[in-house]
Design a protein around this nucleic acid. Sequence first.
DNA 1: TCTGGGGTCCTAGGACCC
DNA 2: TCTGGGGTCCTAGGACCC
Length: 399
Amino acid sequence: MGDPRRILHIDMDAFFASVEVMRNPSLRGKPVVVGGDPEGTRGVVSSASYEARHFGVRSAMPIVQARKLCPQAIFIRGSHGLYGEVSRHIHEILERVAPLVQMASIDEAYIDITGSLKLFGGDEAIARKIKNDIRTETGLPCTVAVAANKLVSKVAANEVKPDGLLIIPLGGEQAYLAPLPLGKLPGMGPKTCQTLEAMGILTAGQLVTASMALLEPVFGHRMATVLRHTAQGFGSDELTLDHTPKSISRETTFPRDLTDWNEIETIAGQLAEHCAHTLREESLETRRVTLKVRYGDFETRTFAHTLAEPTTIDAHIIAAVRELIPKAKERRTRVRLIGVNLSSLSWNQHQMSLFTREKDEKWERVMKQVDTMRGKHGFDALRLARGAKPDKNKRGSGK
DNA sequence: TCTGGGGTCCTAGGACCC
DNA sequence: TCTGGGGTCCTAGGACCC
């Protein structure tokens, strides 16, 4: 294959909280907690400043608990529109350094900097430049790491947060991961860690040396292989540049559990309309409608219906939801949450031409960046990564 | 006064078809 | 007259991530 690649991971530090501090500088240095609903019941923390983390406040923690740990914190509901704008600005800054940018979430990205190494003077120089540019243009702190693939660069960035920078030299991936506890590895959540720990495996290094004969009976061949590869630092170095959604969903947790199914059905219909709106915005159509119900005891069930024909029409989707309601009603318990999910998405033929145009425009922008850099520094200053060619076929074709 | 909202990927059983 | 496999679709649920 091609040369070894260098993948940079960037992760914004306490992103939502940091944006709020930028917007309102009087918050600087104070514990700031973003998340939750207006009344502060039944919400969780989406982002906490490092000052708040000092008191034990963490993401996904119930707001009520955060309030107990840190009553003096400033609690902010948050404004996702603004965070999205800042995220797009960051994306632009990154594309100036290398055109191959994969936004992994609103506050994280991977960049293939292989082709830009010569141009900027190496991976560390690029990492510093990115941190600097982002700080200068947005005022926000971030952490950056460079490694041979996405997996290792992500782990490395997490280890040096906040405001960190770390370079993992080529070939040093496995040695770097070896001492880390399993929970630091992507894909190893509480359940997997618990199972591995029960087998006496506590670190990445121990997982590398564990025999497949031990792992396979517990996890199956496929999963066991993935676990081992992760611990060895084997990961993908291919960026996914354009992202076709696999599902579109809206859900809501009620301030108080509901028992009135007329009311629940009305709300489900509104959620369906929201989903349908997004569906059309994305020029997609759906064949599968799923109703999600979380009952008062937190048991969660889903009920799905596959349509004979794909649709983009509210009425069809709402009708499918209605059809599923009786199944959800069978359990005669209070309802805490209701949600609607659209999946089996495909491109809406009528809007395909619009999509193709947008996609071409995106590639035109990318190539313009490339041409600008080559104009300044010569053709060889920048090479496109392998596999990074415009794909005129339908999107979402897997991989 | 426990436990949000938006996603992705994987598994597994049953139906159905050849 | 008790018993094949392989493939695909549908459904439900679970683990995980930010």
